[in-house]
């Protein structure tokens, strides 16, 4: 564990909690892409099956359980409890265009052709594009609530910090996982446009609205 991975995990946890609290307190999921949240729940489910097979550490297990629990709670709020506030008309990204290619790639490019490894690889590839429905929805509605931009900022920051973590681990431990690194770079690049808007607008107290 290093400071970059720890702050990355805490940033990820912050994002997940911010979103869950925003939906729970405002009793509304307006502006939130339910499709992205379903993809994240799928990412955590396929990635953390090792909860059933191996114990790494209390921290590892605790965080995985929290991530899975919060993501399913968020999906439950969006599609069940607060369904009336779900803005389905703007959440129209064709997720099958993500899941099918990612599923195919996971079979072709992986470290080991075993069920757990392929599912882990699928989750890594899927996570790198899972935010696209949310970014697409914001481009369609033309704006995003400020709390939603904070959610996206911490979500994007977490994988950017993981990139630094991988540089750190390569340099000090000689460890590197090319699949996670390439997917992490793609994932972080997808946030660049948002990061620019976040820094130039939201941090100056303006509302995030598109076109910029």
């Amino acid at each position: 564990m290093n400071i970059f991975r720890l702050t990355g995990d805490l940033s990820h946890l912050a994002a997940i909690i911010i979103l869950l609290l925003k939906i729970w307190k405002s009793r509304s999921c307006a502006g939130i892409s339910g499709k992205s949240q379903v993809l994240f729940a799928l990412v955590f489910t396929t990635r953390y099956l090792d909860l059933l097979t191996s114990f790494i550490s209390l921290y590892n297990t605790t965080m995985k359980v929290i991530y899975i629990g919060c993501s399913y709670a968020t999906v439950y709020l969006i599609y069940m409890k607060l369904k009336a506030t779900y803005d389905g008309n703007h959440d129209t990204f064709r997720v099958e265009f993500l899941i099918v290619p990612v599923g195919g790639l996971a079979f072709l490019v992986n470290h080991d052709f075993s069920p757990l490894e392929i599912l882990w690889t699928f989750s890594i590839y899927l996570e790198s594009v899972a935010i696209l429905p949310q970014l697409f929805m914001i481009s369609k509605t033309g704006e995003a609530e400020t709390i939603t931009t904070h959610y996206l900022f911490f979500l994007g920051l977490y994988r950017a910090l993981y990139l630094i973590n991988w540089i750190w681990r390569f340099y000090f431990e000689g460890f590197f996982d090319m699949i996670a690194i390439v997917a992490g770079v793609v994932q972080t690049i997808l946030y660049c446009d948002f990061f620019y808007l976040y820094v130039t607008k939201v941090l100056k107290g303006k509302k995030l609205s598109l076109p910029a």
């Binding site: 097979t53 191996s54 790494i56 550490s57 590892n60 075993s114 490894e117 882990w120």
Partner: peptide, 10 residues
């Protein structure tokens, strides 16, 4: 389910 799979990164 092989038990040496556990990934230490989240």
């Amino acid at each position: 389910l092989d038990d040496d799979f556990g990934k230490d990164e989240l």
